[in-house]
Amino acid sequence: MPVTLDAIVMFLGWIGAAAGVVAYAMVSRGRWAASSAPFQLTNLTAAGLMGMVAAANGVWPSVAANLVWIVIGTQAIVVLVRARARRRTAAEAVAAVTPTVAAVAPAVAVGTVTAPAPAPEAVLADADTSPREVGLAA
């Protein structure tokens, strides 16, 4: 049985549908944040694949909705990339100014051992980004 273009498009549509369900499930279960790159990339993939299937079948309202979904997802990815670049630049600036934590932080006695005091965190880790920080919150 030969593989037809229709079969390939349908297969890609199923992949897009599965990607959309995975993204929704991961956010609903708290495994991904709505402002995370994995969620946004999975949603973008789902919209692109399902939009392609809709276009191949002439379902133009769905094509329009998926194009809007793609624009929103692309904007979210751009915002995430810019926020990550700002954090990286800030971290490099802090590292350039602060030679070492041990040299700057005062010592704190811990039992009989003296340890340097923990330095305040200058930059949030990627996973700890709040939606407002990256501009995705309503």
Rank of each mutant, 00 (worst) to 15 (best):
G30I: 11
F11V: 02
V68Q: 12
Q40L: 13
N57G: 07
W14A: 01
T74G: 15
A23N: 07
Q40T: 15
T74M: 13
L67W: 08
I70T: 12
F39I: 00
F11Y: 14
G30C: 06
A46Y: 02
N57L: 11
W69L: 00
A46P: 04
W69G: 00
A37R: 14
N57T: 15
A19T: 03
L44K: 07
I70L: 15
R29D: 12
P61N: 08
V59L: 10
W69N: 12
V71R: 04
W60V: 12
I72P: 00
L67M: 12
S36Y: 11
V68G: 06
T42V: 10
A76E: 04
W69R: 08
W32A: 08
G30K: 09
R31D: 15
N66I: 00
A23F: 00
I15Q: 12
R29N: 13
M50Q: 14
L44F: 14
A47H: 03
G58A: 06
S28L: 07
T74P: 00
N43H: 01
G48A: 09
V53S: 02
P38F: 08
A47Q: 02
L49T: 01
A23D: 13
V27Y: 07
G16A: 05
Q40N: 13
V21F: 09
T45D: 02
G48F: 07
I72G: 00
R29H: 13
L44H: 14
S28E: 13
W32L: 08
A76G: 03
A37H: 09
W69E: 05
A76K: 09
A76N: 15
A64W: 11
A23W: 02
A25R: 03
P61A: 07
T42A: 13
R29W: 14
P38A: 05
P38G: 08
G51S: 01
Y24C: 03
A65W: 03
F39N: 12
V59H: 13
G58W: 07
A54E: 06
A25W: 02
T74S: 15
F11K: 10
W60S: 11
A54G: 03
L44M: 13
T42N: 05
S28M: 11
Q75E: 12
V71H: 00
A33N: 11
T42C: 11
M50Y: 01
I72L: 14
M26F: 12
Q40W: 03
Q75A: 13
T74I: 10
A54H: 02
